[in-house]
Every structure is written in C-alpha cells, then in structure tokens.
Design a protein around this nucleic acid. Structure first.
Lengths: 124, 124
DNA sequence: TTGCGTTATATTCCTGAATATATAACGGTA
DNA sequence: TACCGTTATATATTCAGGAATATAACGCAA
C-alpha cells in the first residue's frame, strides 16, 4: 500500500479527512446540505417562515436561498403563495423532491469517500 | 444507470459538483490547500515573510497557521530562526515534505471524485 | 555598537456579513 | 371592512474576521 503519514501524526488525538460538497451553477452555489434541509422543512410545514424558524435562520436568508434556487433551476422548485387562507404558504415541486433524493445519494458517496480517505491516514 | 436530474437543470449554463477538503485534528482544521501552499513557498523562499507576501497574506496569519501546524503535528513542520545572518529565516522539515506529497495525492483523488460526480448530473 | 531583515506579538481599524427591526403587500375568511 | 399569518422588501444594527499598524526581540555581521 502507499506510504502513510502515521509517523507525522500524534499518537494521542484523532485525525480524519473531512470536507464539504455542493452543486454549482455557473460557478455559484446551487445546491448543498443547507438548501436541501430547507426544502425538506418547507415540504413538512408548508411555510418558509416556519421552516426558517426550525433551522434558526432568518426569514430573509431563507427567502433569498429560495429565490436563488428558483432562478438557477430550469423551473421553480418552490411555489410561493402570499395571502389567502392561513395567510398563505409555500410548497415544493416534485422536481425539488427528485433533487433532494439525488443529493442524498451524492452525500452518501461523499461520506464513503471521506471514510476511505480517513483510513489512509493511519494504515500502511 | 441511476436516474439523472438533467430535466431539472437549465439547458444553457453549466452545472458541476464542487467541494473543499482538508485533514482535521481533533475536529479542528489541520491541513488543506492553503497550508500546503504556504509550506511550499516557505521551502522556496526560506522566509515566512516572503511566502506570505507571495500569497497576499498578512505575516500574522501565516505565522498563526504555522504555529497551529507545529502544535498539531507530532513534531514541528517548520523550523523558525529569529535573527542571524540575513535577519533569520525559516525552513520546513522532511516530514513537512512528506505531508505535502500525501496531500497532493489526496487532492488528486478528490478531483477525480468531483469529475465523476459532475458527470452524473448530465448522464442517464 | 550599530544595522539589517527576519521572527514575535499586541493593538487598532475596517469592512463585509449576519442579524434584528420595521413596514408593506397579499388574499382569503368572517 | 377588519383580521390573520404569510410572503416581500428596505433599513438599521451588531458582530467577527481580516487587515493594517506599531513595536519589540533576535542574532549575526561589519
């Protein structure tokens, strides 16, 4: 196996490979863990407001994330209703659900990659 | 092949998977692209000061990065000399060079992963 | 002893980002 | 019409990190 860096690391203390991952559109962030969770919570609550509160995020930030999502995707991923019964609300599209599912699988592969690489820090 | 999300993405404009990667020690950043480049430039110039200038980084920030590196590794990765001929200088150890080489290979595998995943955005 | 360029460290300043606050618009219901 | 909770948007405030500045210590050479 390839040479390890075991002798460079402290024996006490834990080392691992970590990282972050996202999908870009024209070199700007399009989709990652934060937006995925936001969409899921909008789906559950039917409200940007409540979803944002659950995530301890300002409504403004949540709204901006959704505006970006809707602009960067081919078709809107969130349908917004201002006013109406119960004051309005928001819903996500089936395409949004497909994107969430795709992203979940992507994350799983990334997690596996990180595990694999973390092992290489210690093994000979 | 697994279902793609092609129909969700704009036909015009480019999508890709991107990310960042680093090695952690006890849940704090230990080694990544920035520190690797800094070590390489110290090796080339023999000076923290000049290395920092090349990277448009303040001396303080560079010095803090090196202090962290030297603390988090088993043995110091940079040897510092204050005063002396030409005012002093700094040099990196062979272990630092090993770490740089290990990191380079890690980055290559990560780049390959990103390429692979980016392809899955478009392909059926 | 002075000069030099580096390392070492504290302190002040500044700016961008996140947060908080405020207000309006919306469209149903009663 | 008045009310309600949401979406929509602007403005003000706070905060943290980085940048800039200043100063000292270091050790060799001339």
């Amino acid at each position: 196996m390839a040479k390890s860096i075991k002798h460079i690391l402290k024996k006490t203390g834990s080392y691992r490979v970590n990282g972050s991952l996202w999908i870009e559109f024209n070199d700007t962030r399009f989709f990652g863990p934060g937006r995925s969770e936001l969409l899921e919570r909008i789906d559950q609550t039917g409200s940007i407001n409540q979803a944002a509160k659950q995530m301890h995020m300002s409504y403004k930030k949540a709204w901006e994330m959704i505006a970006a999502l809707n602009t960067q995707a081919k078709r809107p991923l969130v349908i917004l209703h201002a006013g109406g019964e119960r004051g309005g609300g928001s819903e996500i599209t089936n395409e949004a659900r497909e994107l969430i599912a795709f992203h979940r699988l992507l994350r799983e592969r990334f997690t596996a990659f990180l595990e694999r690489e973390s092992g290489k820090l210690q093994n000979d």
